[in-house]
Design a protein around this nucleic acid. Structure first.
Lengths: 195, 195
DNA sequence: TTGATTAATGAATCAACATTCAAAATATAA
DNA sequence: TTATATTTTGAATGTTGATTCATTAATCAA
């Protein structure tokens, strides 16, 4: 049939986001993804090596985007580490709450990827965490942040907390307004809950 | 053969923890679990309805334990909300870092369970979060904690952060000493990172 | 001791799906 | 137009692994 080719690869990725979000990676059927994308089952294999490759491609793109956007924030010379931290939080919530299905896939399937330890996405992921660490380090050198914090641990805790919030938000966006989540996270990280 | 019955059900659960941790739920084979437990493949079905039932049983037990232990802490009259919060953190790290394989299953497979929304474990899980919320509320009423915190959000963020730390710890326990994780988490939640 | 009951076995069954590939459709070139 | 190249199709293939169940073993009751 060869329809004037729009962008089949992108169509398939978009369909995969939908289907992975609905059923989870392991219960997602290639035939369903193809159907959703409006192509034949076999066509999926013209654009992707196999099912796993679709998931890897998705994660590569997400992490690449998060990583690039964070790089911009980190490189700025005109704002303080505290402001960079705020920017980081806004940016992550922004990217992920843009597309609820994508957010669901992101939060639910990442563990399987880490288990495998393959794909470029790991590079972007590590890069992202390193950039976050850099912001914290800058603030410590600066005297803005406490010298007692353990960078590795704080960056993981923070990221894990946001991860979990986004997961719940994706399930019921109305119960967790993005604006409130951002503000609460910023406040907790900086000042804690004590008066 | 009917060996003098030790506790086959428990043996199978223990084996499942091993195998789920190694391969992830979806790649875990019942035959491998049976082999690890030292029983025949078919015997698994004498003790569990199906594969999913094994996972549900595991989560029920973990959440029941977390929930019961938290109840004890919450009920204490002799300590402040801040001390209860410390107790909560110590308790969660304690239960989960007791058994690395269990911790891996716990952090990696929970999302699939939530998707399904079945099993008693959801009751225990909600109960656990509610108890955590109660500690925070008590501290707010008390004047110890800021009145501006959003209970739902803070409890999720905190739990998600610990979750993520435990996941990393399970992958390489030496890089993330439990004692340091505890101390950092307590400090972050209470005082934040700013000086 | 023997017949009935319960527990355990593991090979056979069966369905589900990822993946393949010969055939069909479309495009391009000459 | 016709021959060739490229893209797409979707039914057939093959594998994997959860689940079943007829058979065997152990235990118990009398």
């Amino acid at each position: 049939m060869r329809t004037r080719e729009g962008n089949k690869k992108q169509d398939i990725l978009d369909a995969a986001i939908q289907v992975f979000a609905e059923s989870g990676y392991y219960n997602a059927k290639i035939s369903r993804i193809a159907e959703t994308a409006g192509v034949a089952t076999g066509s999926v294999y013209l654009y992707f090596h196999n099912k796993e490759d679709i998931l890897f491609t998705l994660f590569d793109r997400i992490w690449l985007e998060l990583s690039e956007q964070l790089q911009v924030i980190v490189d700025r010379q005109d704002i303080t580490p505290e402001q960079k931290l705020d920017g980081l939080i806004d940016m992550v919530f922004g990217v992920l709450t843009n597309n609820p299905s994508l957010a669901i896939v992101f939060v639910n399937e990442q563990s399987h990827l880490i288990q495998k330890g393959v794909g470029d996405f790991n590079v972007y992921y590590e890069n992202f965490l390193d950039l976050g660490e850099k912001v914290l380090q800058e603030g410590m050198d600066n005297g803005e942040f406490s010298p007692d914090i353990n960078l590795k641990i704080i960056r993981l805790f923070t990221f894990g907390g946001m991860h979990h919030l986004i997961q719940k938000w994706a399930q019921s966006p109305d119960s967790y307004p993005v604006e409130v989540m951002r503000q609460q996270v910023k406040s907790l990280i900086k000042k804690g809950i004590k008066i």
